[in-house]
Design a protein around this nucleic acid. Structure first.
Length: 443
DNA sequence: TCTGGGGTCCTAGGACCC
DNA sequence: TCTGGGGTCCTAGGACCC
């Protein structure tokens, strides 16, 4: 008999401790912390199906507008459709698959509702992505008079009932283990990993499936015979700290059941950067076209910034060569801005320093960073004029934003974006087909 | 797998300073 | 002549995630 069961039998012999209370106590000892991970099942497609039940049970893929699969239903997955698979390939291999464009605004609405439901149970909900979150429910069992499992079931059922889409749940003692748990059984699964069951799961988890361990680290550690998450744990801290960086070591602690990563509640924190990039075919060295692409990215990304009431203090842009090399330049803005023509002026000045006419380019992109809330942007305090050029630009762009919101993002664009937004020369860019309900197929 | 797009965090190493 | 030592700030790029 080990010391733990000895202690239990002592308790059992006492009159004051009944069986139920003791069971509860032992259960909590297995949950020094109780962290829930909630993960939407084929979320984008599930939202589409919830709005259009005729899609239910069918192989459905979203991402038509990007020409690659962004999400697929389990029926499509079963056929062999994978993430990132080109749409033309799916059409060729699986003609029965229904391919639809993504509707991010719709997914955003479902996401907000999902977070609202979670917050009914605890304020300690961390935004992780549009369809994934963490919740720290430590102690909630006591408060609600339910076991942790009962709480997980209740939340899962509520999400399903109110949103019409299913979620998989993982409950464990750390965030990394909660992620392992939620992936264990999908869709609509629920997996609970208390402290003493960790090895059972880690033995069956390939290291590369652990959150934060990517292909590089997996390949590196495989050399040492590490195949499963349990092999990784068994190597010990000293061995790993000599060979791996801090993030990997933190994962090790989390897999051991020691929680290092807190659940950070509150709203989804503001963006640290915003970017827009796109690859085009075939590669080109045409500076007019390249600048036009950059101009379009600036328009898109500044619009996102304005929607989030953010302004950039720094901007970077890149040209990506045919052989996947980046030429990147950073521009520091004199004052934080979300106005495209100001950023475009800065890019125009640096364009020559990255552009090499002898190179062929395949992609461009623009990133805004050093973002600050727009309300903090100084209002031209030292200006003597009552209305500055910046003020009138702001008015202009708030009007433009209204038009774009009402009539669609392709209604208006800067003249410098014309080549990119408007009449693309044939062959410059793959032509897109639009399926419009009334007009049918439109090129 | 002939490699899409939007993010975050970490780290090595250079620049600069005393 | 083997070129002090240490701190901070910044950037490019790697790795990872959905």
């Amino acid at each position: 008999m080990n010391s733990k069961s000895l202690q239990s039998s002592k308790e059992w012999s006492g009159d004051t401790v009944n069986k139920k209370e003791r069971a509860e106590k032992e259960f909590r000892a297995d949950f020094p912390r109780a962290i829930l991970h909630v993960d939407g099942d084929a979320f984008f497609v599930a939202c589409e199906v919830a709005c259009n039940p005729s899609l239910k049970g069918k192989p459905v893929v979203t991402g038509e507008e990007r020409r690659i699969a962004s999400a697929m239903s389990y029926e499509a997955k079963a056929l062999g459709v994978g993430r990132g698979m080109p749409v033309h390939e799916i059409r060729k291999l699986f003609p029965e698959v229904i391919i639809i464009p993504s509707h991010y605004r719709l997914y955003e609405i479902f996401s907000q509702r999902m977070y609202r439901i979670l917050r009914r149970y605890t304020e300690s909900v961390e935004w992780y992505s549009i369809d994934e979150c963490f919740a720290d429910i430590t102690g909630l069992d006591h408060e609600l008079g339910m076991s942790y499992e009962e709480i997980a079931i209740t939340i899962q059922d509520t999400l399903h009932a109110e949103l019409g889409i299913s979620f998989s749940m993982g409950l464990s003692v750390t965030k990394v283990l909660a992620k392992v748990a939620s992936k264990w059984k999908k869709p609509n699964g629920r997996t609970i990993i208390p402290l003493n069951s960790i090895p059972d799961y880690l033995q069956k988890t390939p290291l590369g499936k652990v959150w934060g361990i990517g292909p590089q680290t997996t390949r590196y550690l495989q050399q040492f015979g590490i195949a499963t998450a349990q092999d990784f744990v068994d190597k010990g801290e000293a061995w790993l700290s000599e060979r791996c960086a801090k993030p990997v070591l933190e994962i090790w602690h989390e897999l051991c059941g020691r929680s290092l990563h807190d659940v950070h509640p509150g709203k989804h924190s503001k963006h640290k950067s915003l970017s827009s990039t796109e690859t085009f075919m075939p590669p080109t060295s045409d500076p007019t076209f390249l600048f036009s692409e950059l101009s379009r990215h600036v328009e898109l990304v500044t619009r996102s910034a304005r929607q989030e009431t953010l302004a950039a203090t720094r901007v970077s842009f890149f040209l990506k060569t045919r052989d996947f090399r980046y030429r990147r330049v950073e521009c520091v803005m004199p004052t934080p801005t979300a106005l495209p023509h100001i950023i475009l002026d800065a890019i125009r000045k640096s364009f020559g320093s990255v552009y090499d006419p002898s190179m062929m380019y395949r992609a461009t992109g623009v990133t805004l960073f050093g973002l600050v809330p727009i309300s903090h942007v100084s209002q031209d305090l030292f200006s003597t004029q009552t209305e500055t050029a910046t003020d009138s630009s702001k008015k202009l762009y708030s009007t433009i934003d209204e038009i774009l919101n009402r009539f669609g993002s392709k209604t208006l664009y800067l003249c410098s974006s014309l080549t990119a937004f408007g009449n693309r020369k044939a062959g410059r860019k793959k032509e897109r087909n639009f399926h419009l309900p009334i007009l049918g197929k439109v090129s």
